[in-house]
Design a protein around this nucleic acid. Structure first.
Lengths: 282, 282
DNA sequence: GGCAACGATACCGTCCGGGTATGGATCCGG
DNA sequence: CCGGATCCATACCCGGACGGTATCGTTGCC
């Protein structure tokens, strides 16, 4: 199977419409029809049930949609990582590390310092992004290594090393009645009047329905908390970023957060291995 | 990047010789040279350092070799899984489960029984193979799910659920002096006179150097133990397969073995999900 | 210095991928 | 019930890409 065939099939399978898929691919519709037919003939399996009015996926087709996307991702990642490697030999940044904006900042600072002191260290480009984006960036080869936080982030498909665990605190506007407590429970905060928990975007960028403001990163969230529009359950390390308007109280029964360093399998890179080793020794 | 280009590059990168690579690919050498040049030009990066006498990988080239192999694996896996899905709708076996020959047989039997009793169960094809082959079969899409044993098997890149842990025993010919002991330590058996530990094949099929017979599966190993040519440290569940000529003694300080059920990410299959759920409930 | 090995280049034929025009089936509005 | 619109398939043509053969230029070796 050629990647071109896969791209064509994925486009049709996503659109369920040859005309739109062809338009998206920048080709005419007849060659697309023919390409899909050839693919089906070569595989010896029907991928699409089509009448002259409608297109539907067969079982095999839905498998190929999922697996084909993964394969195309892998091809694209191979290309990007190759280009990154080529750039790094011509003197540019050698490693891209991605982490959630506003999380584990002191851990990250310590890691970068410690790694920079290693012999043979290369420049590290730090990418900050919203939650659930890291996984994609790492999978697509746009980043070489990520700091993830279980159980929020999925580590499926990556190699990981645990770097540490921490409890969670609820972040509130300073002066809120609850801030006088030494600790609280989840039940105390799930239905705080006027202070809903925020909604984070799904991997596809859309927001789940419900109350609570939509937030994209931690800084934005803290701002909303300071404004008295939300409260937040966050790893306790976020206390380092709290200023006067905010207060934090430990939540005893919130799930423990584990920070892990993750990197794609097949990473033979010396630099990634050094960085991971440095991280585990912190 | 097209898979054809990737295949060509991987062949050259592995052979480090355009002529042999072309032969392996079944094409002439000039088109291969040209294809690699085009690939390098399109990427804008040198992949190979070549003189008229020698070919060597650049840094970027070695990255593309590793990543490209992974991407090609993903494409092949997509094709195989699609074909398996197509077959299963035309009435053939629906799931392929791979495990080491001679390991966890009673767990496997219980799992297959329990799953077969589920509503909506599909036929399960059981593939028995040598160690270190399961990972490949699963990655290549030849199998849908595997029973792996940590720490022996790597679970990198797969989703897993733990099914249970067990200690290890040393398997000896019955009548061996150590068999009267209630338990032993690793130090007691690493240098047993005349009873070396066997050598298992590496993932590439070659055997590491050293004493000890070469073995491919557990049945073969037990036969060698019965013949007094080897001893074996194995999970205690293998006791179910021991017959009169063999005896087992617990090894207190051998690493604990964890049996996990593993499946590739992206597996949206209802059948895999059912099987995993059944397994975790055992 | 001649030869052999090896990758690059030149040139040519063929097949494949893409375009336009059109056919055939289905749904819908009048 | 009919005509048009929609949508996928077919027919046909063209250009370029891919593969093959012949040959060149360089390099290492006897």
């Amino acid at each position: 199977m050629e990647t071109r065939e896969l791209r064509y099939f994925v486009a049709v399978a996503e659109e369920l419409h040859f005309g739109r898929a062809a338009q998206r691919l920048g080709i005419a519709q007849p060659p697309l029809s023919r390409a899909i037919q050839q693919l089906e003939r070569r595989l010896g399996a029907a991928l699409l049930d089509r009448t002259s009015r409608t297109v539907a996926l067969t079982v095999a087709g839905s498998v190929l949609l999922v697996e084909g996307r993964a394969a195309l991702d892998a091809v694209d990642a191979a290309e990007r990582r190759t280009l990154r490697a080529a750039l790094s030999t011509t003197g540019r940044a050698g490693l891209a590390l991605v982490t959630k904006a506003g999380a584990s900042s002191e851990l990250l600072a310590k890691l970068l310092d410690a790694y920079a002191a290693e012999p043979g260290a290369v420049p590290v480009e730090v990418i900050l992004c919203g939650p659930a984006e890291q996984e994609r960036l790492l999978r697509e080869g746009r980043a070489d290594v990520a700091l993830l936080h279980r159980p929020f982030d999925s580590t499926a498909g990556f190699h990981t090393e645990e770097l540490g665990t921490e409890g969670q605190v609820v972040v509130l506007p300073s002066g809120h009645p609850l801030t006088v407590r030494a600790h609280v429970h989840m039940a105390d905060i799930t239905a705080l009047p006027g202070l809903p928990l925020p909604r984070w975007p799904d991997p596809d960028g859309s927001y789940p329905p419900g109350p609570g403001p939509q937030v994209r990163d931690h800084a934005q969230l803290l701002q909303l908390v300071a404004l008295g529009r939300a409260c937040s359950v966050s790893p306790e390390s976020c206390r380092a970023q709290l200023h006067g308007d905010l207060a934090a109280v430990p939540v005893l029964d919130a799930p423990t957060v584990t920070t892990v360093i993750a990197w794609p399998p097949h990473s033979r890179s010396r630099a990634v291995a050094d960085l991971v080793r440095t991280a585990t020794r912190l």
